[in-house]
């Protein structure tokens, strides 16, 4: 049977639509398959990209090296004086680190995962733990320093997508540490956060620390979120708002902890 070009085109379009519909029903499985076969290549490309960008950054910095060298010599002398002080602090720091690690393990049940992809245009991450690793939707994701990153939004068989707190679809209850002022953090995209619904009579300051509250049941309480960067006051709006800079640095995120139980 020979089809006319017009009928052939219609047939191709129908087949195409059917394939897309089919894929949509199995999108988790399809995405998981591609993540599974791509993760070794993505890891290599990630490392190559890191080295190449470091190389270009070094070239761009050559101009300033001489000036920087002189400044560094001066600073070196200052640092020598501080070394003695730092040695004492180092010991204290080690003790605190251990305490923090114990604290994390004491408060939550954690699963360690590696970051294998970052979709910065949509404020999301891809990690190498999925349903088979005991991960499920809505689980909080934090750093080793107890800094909130986001929550699991799309767990696949061996991988999961993490929706960063800066994603526009993210909002949750927070409080300002040491002030007991509560509000809501909303993702503004592009790693930006907005603190909203702060009553006008409550005092907030730039530099204030924001931590989570257990309100809403999305995240455990007392997890670091960010620091107030700029307060936005408006006579029209019934509440105060503020821009908040998150504590996590996307470019340095390589491993994360998923809170499986708290």
């Amino acid at each position: 049977m020979k089809l006319s070009p017009r009928k052939r085109k219609i047939l191709i379009i129908i087949i195409g639509i059917l394939i897309i519909i089919g894929f949509t029903f199995y999108q988790k499985e399809v995405k998981n398959f591609f993540y599974l076969i791509s993760s070794p290549i993505q890891k290599t490309l990630w490392q190559v990209g890191d080295r190449v960008s470091d190389f270009f950054e070094t070239i761009a910095e050559i101009k300033n090296l001489k000036k920087e060298n002189e400044e560094l010599k001066l600073k070196n002398q200052e640092f020598l004086a501080q070394i003695v002080l730092l040695k004492a602090l180092k010991k204290e720091n080690e003790l605190l680190r251990k305490a923090l690690e114990i604290d994390l393990k004491k408060d939550f049940q954690l699963t360690l995962a590696e970051v294998i992809g970052k979709d910065i245009s949509q404020d999301s991450l891809l990690i190498n733990k999925g349903l088979t690793g005991g991960i499920s939707e809505e689980m909080p994701v934090i750093t080793e320093g107890k800094v909130l990153i986001g929550r699991i939004s799309e767990p696949a068989e061996n991988f999961s997508r993490v929706l960063l707190i800066s994603n526009p679809n993210s909002s949750f209850g927070v409080k300002i540490q040491e002030r007991e002022v509560t509000g809501v953090i909303k993702g503004k995209g592009n790693f930006k956060l907005l603190l909203d619904l702060i009553p006008k009579d409550q005092e907030i300051k730039e530099g204030d620390l924001i931590v989570t509250t257990s309100l809403g049941g999305i995240f455990p309480k007392e997890i670091l979120v960010g620091r107030i960067q700029k307060i936005l006051r408006s006579d029209i709006k019934p509440f105060q708002q503020a821009l908040v800079s998150p504590f996590f640095d996307i470019s340095k995120l390589e491993t994360v902890f998923i809170i499986t139980s708290y």
């Binding site: 791509s38 290549i41 993505q42 890891k43 490309l45 990630w46 190559v48 990209g49 890191d50 190449v52 960008s53 992809g117 970052k118 979709d119 910065i120 891809l126 470019s251």
Partner: peptide, 10 residues
């Protein structure tokens, strides 16, 4: 793959 891993650094 390049877009989601290599290019992120740029």
């Amino acid at each position: 793959l390049i877009q989601t891993s290599f290019l992120i650094h740029f």
